[in-house]
Write a protein that binds this DNA or RNA. Structure first.
Lengths: 167, 167
DNA sequence: AATAACTTTCAATTATTTTTGAAAGTTTGA
DNA sequence: TCAAACTTTCAAAAATAATTGAAAGTTATT
């Protein structure tokens, strides 16, 4: 396999994966493209490589910057903007975890707290509901704390964690 | 908040969460409904509670059974089928992890292996591509192994893990 | 202050995904 | 073997999400 083919394959694969994880395909593809680029890429080049419109490129780049995993860069003497991706994978994982926690887990916890604290009358049905949603609340809270802990490590936490787990 | 309202809120929330994670809304809602039901639910009842068609219920129930997180049950003397969800949350997490590994991570690893082993000529661009995809391969492989380890614990692995991490 | 070089926005279009419902399929029991 | 009581399938319709492209917006330069 030659370079161009490999690069394309990687971008396509990462894009497909993105859509399974609630990130849109183009956004994931742009991210993939930037991750494997050794230097900042202009919007023009992104449009060209992925065959997408200016509007599409602009919106998805913004999305990636909102996630904190893509940065704008300016080159001296050049008027246009260039983009780079976070390339450190531990850092990438940390940012994605934090963002998902903020966007999804925290709001879910709030709802779980609410629904699990209704006054369960004596019916088995209601008791089970309260019991199950309480367990779910505890579980999700614990999972979220785990993510927090991981961001504390930060330096190769995944490697350290795997070692700990094997003991 | 009264029971019916709480139950509905929970089902809606879980459904919305599902769509962010690549699982469709109805599938997640059915799962939510079954999780908080203290006894098996018929397809008829699911259709009624979620206001969905027979075809939709049938297909999504099958999807949930393919994930191994919903089971069919038969009641003596009754002709129709009933459904229950896996209610043990550790078990649920293990099943979802295993399935995602099989469906998404393993195929991705295969591609990453392929593209990271092209012969990088001497251009900085190609070198960076090989370097970055290799790192990604290692990272994803490690993450996948971590999931495997977690399934070994199985009994409240999440709690144990959090304790370990705090040390 | 005018213009050139760029980026962002958003209504309309296009593509994708989900849902429906009726026909076909299956199983049980008389 | 027939029919009743179910479930599954799948083509068409509906709903949702992504994309386009041109106009509006912004910023730097002369």
């Amino acid at each position: 396999m030659e370079f161009k083919e490999a690069k394309n394959k990687f971008v396509q694969t990462w894009g497909a994966l993105g859509s399974q994880w609630g990130i849109n395909k183009t956004m994931a593809q742009i991210h993939a493209l930037l991750m494997v680029s050794n230097e900042p890429v202009s919007m023009e080049d992104i449009m060209e490589e992925l065959q997408i419109s200016r509007g599409n490129a602009s919106m998805n780049l913004r999305g990636l910057m909102d996630w904190g995993i893509v940065y704008k860069e300016y080159k001296a003497g050049e008027r246009k903007e260039f983009f780079t991706a976070e390339k450190d994978l531990d850092e990438l994982a940390v940012k994605i975890s934090r963002e998902r926690s903020k966007r999804e887990i925290k709001p879910t916890l709030k709802i779980l707290k609410e629904v699990s604290t209704i006054e369960a009358k004596d019916s088995a049905e209601e008791k089970h509901f309260v019991d199950q949603t309480t367990k779910l609340y505890d579980f999700v809270l614990k999972a979220d704390n785990m993510l927090d802990k991981m961001t504390e490590f930060n330096d190769n936490w995944l490697g350290k964690l795997v070692i700990k787990m094997m003991k």
